[in-house]
Nucleic acid binder design. Structure first.
Lengths: 345, 345
DNA sequence: GTGAAAGCGCTAACAC
DNA sequence: GTGTTAGCGCTTTCAC
């Protein structure tokens, strides 16, 4: 590292005091036009830029947001990360990424590292937090927003789509489509999104007097979802018994895995043999090869609500935590039989 | 923000000096077992953790690596980001993400922001740099490694696959497959990867006396690639003229876009009507719906070489810049007609 | 409006 | 091995 240029150097060169330089480079500065000009010229010639870390030390504002994320294989998360990052950059923040590996639950350690960096806020976009973790966050005074998950602990802000309603919509759609054997492949059961989606789905089925035909767990994971599909459709497993004619899969990532699996391994046609409905509406879902009927999670709105909530909590630490739920539309495509009169547009 | 707990507080509580606390929490510490115990107990009770930013200020080691990335829609980059992040975390670094928007070339500004955060190193995983930018990086003394791109400027380290060789392999494969009308859909022509892949491809064609049948540009972008495909295969465009029987597409992301487009819009079969070969071998490429023949970019090795190079440059600023090229294998699947005797495995 | 001085939380000489 | 001292580069009173 070459010698860094400090405000001292600029001050010397401009023939002013160091604090004058600081003021010129501070947002709420109060410097004369002449002063500003002198300093900025000297700064430019030297290539000076203020050291954010030193500034953070004194202001307590690092302009760093920690984002915990995992499993970028599920296209929903890269999409979210990209938009979150962009939105935060626009607000003058930058994103410090923490990759959580799903295997070991080292989220505790991650949180420590996050706090070590003096992040001003945390977005948990994967991995859930124990109540203990939540308490530690609160204690540290760093605002946290859960993205696409909630927590029983009321003190944490959370932004999700309305997963219960989404689950309901899927059930309504499949029942209206006259499906007789409706199954479910669940995501990770520890996730609030999964519990809510399934709750809405099951509730609606029950209210309409329709039994759940079958259920497997795919843990929001590609391979696990394919295992689940094999258990549900594989000849040696179903031996003799009928297979479902519709499956609500817990997210698009798994739904695509299931489609790939049952078309390729069992020669099943979608939706002629079996209807598939997902959740998220990732970009891939609209590709002709899949044309996946799904519930859209309104990503742009989720991102802007997340950023707004976080920034509010940062600026006003007294502001109450909020839990925002955004309705997601059913996007009807061709992976599930469409009831009469249900067509989009 | 609640009052932060400082090493002072711990020192007071443990009845030792503040520097003793610092030593206990420093890697190359020299503290007696007794001391360590006392301090750690006090620290635990108070929930103390050292402030990395303050440490950085004095050590000059922020443990932050800036990663510039863009267009996470192309699955190659989320995969890379995940692995880079994980590898760097393992080395005690964390990743500050800078999203470059492809539209405006604000890379200049991004670089400034990067340096403001006192990053110890920079990985450019998207967006190329002007020579001017490269010079500024060098001047700032912050090591830079280009990931999946090179630059004429020899002073920047770069890790890529052997794109020229990869392009050659595709040409050899398509020629051996007895294709008669071989076309190319190029990525962004400003990218070294594109230039190299095409160079290798064209060179091999020429050496074997095979003309390039057609060429369009897809800019590594999904929609643009589909436009390119329409120009190449659309009836009103090709009016009367024959269409290619093989296309080498500049990366998988575009290749998938092209497959989707020509199957859906023109009813073409792959590979019966037209062979498609991509580049990268992203996860999606192996899905049965695509079964894309492609050149594999050895991601794990590219990532570990990138991290190694960067960490070396950080630890020894005198270490020379290196340009690493890793050979990538041709992965034969079903999107392109396979010459006799070429089958994998 | 500007400069002098104090200090953010920590590490690194330096004495003992 | 431990405490004392001096800063890292910056913002922020406080006088003027």
């Amino acid at each position: 590292m070459k010698e860094a240029i400090t405000s001292q150097h600029v001050a010397r060169k401009a023939g002013v005091s160091q604090s004058a330089v600081s003021r010129v480079f501070s947002p709420g500065a109060s410097a004369s036009a002449e002063m500003t000009a002198k300093v900025q010229q000297a700064a430019n010639e030297l290539g000076y830029r203020p050291n954010i870390l030193a500034r953070s030390l004194i202001t307590g504002k690092s302009k760093i947001i920690g984002v915990v994320v995992a499993y970028l294989e599920n296209q929903f998360y890269p999409q979210a990360l990209e938009k979150l990052s962009l939105a935060l950059q626009q607000q003058g923040f930058h994103v410090l990424v923490f990759m959580a590996t799903m295997t070991d639950d080292n989220v505790d350690q991650l949180l420590d590292e996050l706090l070590d960096y003096q992040v001003e806020g945390i977005i948990m976009a994967s991995a859930s937090m124990s109540s203990d973790l939540a308490r530690r966050c609160r204690k540290s005074g760093v605002p946290v927003v859960l993205f696409n998950r909630r927590q029983d602990d009321e003190t944490l802000s959370a932004v999700t789509s309305n997963n219960i309603l989404g689950g309901r919509k899927v059930a309504q759609f499949l029942i209206a489509g006259n499906h007789q054997r409706i199954a479910h492949i669940a995501g990770w059961e520890g996730a609030s999104t999964q519990r809510d989606r399934e709750l809405g789905f099951i509730t609606e089925l029950q209210q309409q007097g329709v039994p759940l035909f079958n259920r497997e767990v795919g843990n929001y994971h590609f391979e696990s979802a394919q295992q689940a599909a094999r258990a549900m459709f594989g000849r040696e497993k179903t031996n003799g018994k009928p297979i479902p004619d519709a499956v609500f899969v817990g997210n698009d990532h798994m739904a695509l895995a299931v489609m790939e699996c049952i078309r390729d391994e069992f020669g099943l046609r979608v939706p002629e043999d079996v209807s598939i409905v997902g959740y998220d509406d990732v970009d891939l879902a609209s590709w002709p090869s899949f044309s996946l009927t799904t519930i859209r999670q309104p990503l742009n709105r989720m991102v802007s609500e997340t950023v707004n909530t976080l920034v509010n909590n940062i600026n006003d630490s007294a502001s109450a935590s909020s839990r925002i739920e955004i309705d997601g539309d059913l996007i009807i495509r061709n992976s599930a039989r469409v009831p009469d009169g249900w067509n989009n547009a």
